[in-house]
Design a binder for these strands. Structure first.
Lengths: 200, 200
DNA sequence: CGAAAATTTGACATGACTCAACTGGAGTGG
DNA sequence: CCACTCCAGTTGAGTCATGTCAAATTTTCG
């Protein structure tokens, strides 16, 4: 890269701002939180978790783009979710059980994350109990939207799902390759290409 | 019915037992919880929530069987989930936002529930903060399994999904009509019938 | 500039859907 | 106890959405 990118400061403000959308934090709360999370940068293509490993971190995306995907026994990849700025990502099942991960979590761009390890999160829940509330609320929301996705997939043809995706996540659509979007929508890259050619 | 069923006592023990799988409750905690939940019986076919209404309760199933489903603009029903003994059910999106429900929640049998209203739950979180932790944990688990369902639906043909469902939820399979299982699996009742005739 | 990756295109295959007819219980009422 | 209806489930013919495979084209990026 010709023009070196100036590193943004490794501060936790984006995380605090996000949490404070749901619960209020005292100065001490913020200090405690800061000592339990770690700021970390990943290069494009780097994995945060790989299938079969234990998912060590729950990660808040400060900058960048991440995909979570599953490689089936035939070697086909299935994208479970994307995450961009202000989203959380992890293989949550692996993280909470500290067992082998079902998914790969990979950075699609140079990505900066604020991460916490499982034991540290448990300590933090003890020190700042309102974070139980915070995580309950955001996981409830995630659950609701995941449930809606199931229904949408069943009751909606692929073309409409694609149109809806573009409308709902325009930033994601522009940052990730189409074959990953196809995978997220549950269709082949060839079929998505045909859908796109049909109109617009 | 010839032999009248003796009503089971309306006690909260099943709820306490369930909660204590995740957090420990003091005698006072249990008393506080009991004053905020209500025990209620529904007849077969009765609705707990209907699409467009506000979902008033989060419900713990003591006895019975419930389905959550969505009726689309063409009038087709899509089953989102079932709930039997020891499961929770609600239109969670509607409950947490106190906005109009996307789903119908209907009892498929005579069903006994332990229910809480949204304002009472908020009060209860305040009085028994460890319930924040409890609900966080069970919603995390629900989220993880919902996410797995998305992937399973995409990467698995209908026949295998059906076999997996039978293995995973044998009690449910025997209690609900097949057309609802078909809907849950995202296929038509006719196609499920053909799958079933193909083998076994 | 050249190679690898992503996307497009076309021919053909198939899983799953639609619609309509038929079967077989489970009430219900005469 | 029979006749009737209703609902769930089955079966078959024809169709459509989407998949597979293989080749051509375009884009990306070292």
């Amino acid at each position: 890269m010709k023009h070196p990118v100036h590193d943004r400061p490794m501060n936790f403000d984006p995380l605090f701002a996000y949490i404070e959308k749901y619960v209020t934090l005292s100065k001490e709360d913020r200090a405690t939180i800061a000592t339990h999370f770690k700021y970390r940068k990943y290069v494009k293509g780097q994995f945060i978790v790989e299938q079969g490993d234990i998912c060590l971190y729950e990660s808040f995306v400060v900058k960048g783009c991440v995909r979570t995907y599953y490689t089936d026994t035939d070697g086909n990849e299935h994208v479970v979710m994307f995450a961009i700025e202000d989203w959380w990502t992890a293989d949550l099942g692996s993280f909470i059980s500290q067992g082998p991960a079902d998914y790969n979590v990979q950075c699609l761009e140079r990505t900066e994350l604020i991460q916490i390890e499982f034991p540290d999160l448990e300590k933090l829940y003890h020190l700042v109990p309102k974070l139980e509330r915070f995580f309950r609320i955001i996981i409830q929301k995630a659950f609701v939207s995941t449930q809606k996705r199931i229904i949408g997939n069943f009751s909606t043809p692929a073309k409409e799902r694609y149109v809806k995706f573009r409308k709902q996540y325009p930033q994601i659509e522009q940052r990730v390759p189409q074959y990953m979007i196809a995978s997220y929508l549950g269709i082949t890259k060839e079929f998505l290409s045909k859908i796109r050619s049909q109109h617009t």
